[in-house]
């Protein structure tokens, strides 16, 4: 099936509202026009990805092409969520970019071990954040080929 570029939904999981706010503003500054969705913790993230609960409707909850994941979240934190995502055969192929305040080496290693695609420590300054987002966009959305979820391999 020919690959038709579709606008990619970016799903971000972060429990901090401020960070969510900043993120949206950074995206605006970076002039990324992608559909940016937010979930507040790991559980919601999984619900969303698994089309459960309020996220059952695929139209209102489009499958993201990339996930930005904060590690420290209540209920189900990012690490757990990452684990589960990578265990789910449907969700496994989703690239997950960890975006977190922690610079702890252990978090970095664990994240990569859990097959996170990248690990980004949240910049301190806003400009930094904007730069990161811009770079993310360029890299993940323009350079990188994302897998097509509708693709079904010939059985």
């Amino acid at each position: 099936m020919p690959h038709t570029p579709k606008p990619i939904t970016i799903l971000m999981a972060d429990d901090d509202a401020d960070d969510r706010q900043l993120a949206r503003e950074a995206f605006d500054e970076a002039k990324l026009s992608n559909d940016l969705r937010f979930v507040e913790d790991g559980a919601e993230l999984l619900e969303y990805l698994q089309r459960r609960g309020k996220y059952s409707d695929p139209a209102s909850s489009p499958r993201p092409g990339i996930i930005l994941l904060d590690l420290n979240m209540p209920k189900v934190d990012g690490r757990e969520a990452l684990t589960r995502i990578k265990l789910d055969p449907n969700l496994k192929c989703l690239p997950v970019v960890v975006l977190t305040t922690s610079k702890a080496e252990i978090d970095i290693i664990r994240s990569y071990n859990l097959s996170a695609a990248s690990y980004i420590a949240k910049p301190i300054t806003f400009e930094g954040l904007v730069e990161v987002v811009r770079t993310l966009g360029r890299y993940w959305l323009e350079i990188v080929e994302l897998p097509d979820h509708d693709y079904v391999p010939n059985a």
């Binding site: 901090d16 900043l22 305040t101 922690s102 949240k122 301190i124 400009e127 954040l129």
Partner: peptide, 20 residues
């Protein structure tokens, strides 16, 4: 660790929003 991390969180916000 936690202290620094958690302490740094609001600071970051302050800086971020302040800059905004």
């Amino acid at each position: 660790y936690i202290a620094s991390h958690d302490l740094q969180e609001p600071l970051r916000k302050i800086q971020a929003f302040g800059t905004r």
